[in-house]
Design a protein around this nucleic acid. Structure first.
Lengths: 228, 228
DNA sequence: TGAATTTGTGACCAACCTGTGACCACATCA
DNA sequence: TGATGTGGTCACAGGTTGGTCACAAATTCA
């Protein structure tokens, strides 16, 4: 699990970095906005710790940039504690907000809380949905009365994401992010992948299928045979 | 969307309650740990605002109890700012942590951030008006005895704006701004969009429809009996 | 190495979204 | 009376989105 730490305070960056490493993360460092962006694009970390006070490109701008490209969780870091900043930061899509000074333990706790929420950490094994069981090891999916179906990596990732969020509609960009990682895919690829996955899992009984919500994304739905 | 507010400070509880209501929540109140638990079990709120200083059963214990039963997001509230408390709270499964004093805006921002993260997402959920329910995820609107209607982005935005302000007449320019953003649309487009939206949502029963107020704008009204 | 599979790309088509202009009805006002 | 403005309806065109297919490039595997 990679974490990108962006802070121009070298000492603090070092402390954070040390703390995260001890908690099991690979840490990438950046000391200004431009570097941060390059690092992010190049390495695709799973979480970003972002100081708002940066030389050159502002932290909020970096946050905006990242959000425009991906759903990667962002924890903001700042000495400023004004409500405006908190509201702005969270409004821009940051996932959490820590004010300095803070303890390493608190940082780690918040990082883990965010990762738990975004579902990137510790996925439950053997997902199932509407009589469909996913086997993460073999990348197979089983449905009652049917032979197990072998999926490819991408197909499985897509289905897994849909099942993990079976209660909601997944926006196109979110799906692209989850399947290919930040900066990885595009709409055409997703379209193609959905097509391939459907061919494999949508059988005669049509218990489960993938519904397109025009202009938004896709969602998993049940019992399609209700038309009449 | 229901929120459970647990705080033995009656004044503060009132302030929070007022703030959340204004943001579109139904608010449940509890002033001690035992009541909190009963409320939670009975009403199953979508989010909990939990003060740690409680008479009787401790806030951390309430948090533990709730977590043992459900994944409902919890935001902790306390004057104590020790790292221990933060770490404990987050470790127990709280989703966020606000230290008093705080501003209403910050509270709402954090609530929204948490809900966004947990996928319960964006406020206010499931707007409804006169038996008509809006589903923001799918851009659909449902009316009793009718199939859900799929709206486009613009149509949904327009209807959402009207429903959110169902008590007042929305001036033409205001609507244009809300739907297309600043500098985005014009009167002709709005006229066209209203026409299209009407075709989709005005059914035979005519429970709800969009009324034009000449020279001013549009308003949502309930059928004062259809002119036959 | 060569074969099979997976993945990316372009193409085509249908359906849909949305902006635009046209036409009409109606009310207001000089 | 006619000019003007507002709102409702319609038809049309360009753009976009989603589904399908074929094929090439990349990858995996024997």
């Amino acid at each position: 699990m990679k974490a990108l730490v962006v802070d121009d305070d070298l000492v603090l960056a070092d402390v954070i970095s040390f703390t995260l490493r001890r908690a099991g993360f690979d840490v990438l460092l950046a000391h200004d906005g431009e570097t941060a962006w390059e690092r992010f694009e190049g390495e695709m970390p799973e979480i970003v710790i972002l100081d708002l006070e940066l030389p050159g490109k502002d932290g909020l701008q970096v946050c905006r940039d990242i959000r425009s490209k991906s759903d990667t969780p962002i924890i903001m870091l700042t000495v400023r504690d004004s409500d405006e900043d908190v509201v702005n930061g969270l409004g821009l899509g940051a996932d959490d907000y820590i004010t300095k000074p803070f303890s390493p333990a608190q940082l780690v706790a918040r990082v883990q809380a965010v990762l738990r929420r975004t579902g990137q950490a510790a996925l439950p094994r053997n997902l199932s949905y509407a009589g469909m069981r996913l086997n993460p090891d073999r990348h197979t999916v089983e449905q009652a009365d049917y032979e197990p179906v072998q999926l490819t990596q991408l197909e499985f990732k897509l289905l897994e994401t849909l099942v993990l969020n079976s209660t909601q509609v997944l926006p196109t960009n979110t799906l692209i992010d989850r399947v290919w990682g930040p900066g990885g895919g595009d709409k055409a690829m997703l379209k193609q992948l959905v097509y391939r996955l459907r061919r494999k899992i949508e059988n005669e009984s049509n218990e489960v299928f993938i519904e397109a919500i025009p202009g938004i994304g896709y969602a998993l739905t049940q019992s399609h045979g209700k038309k009449s």
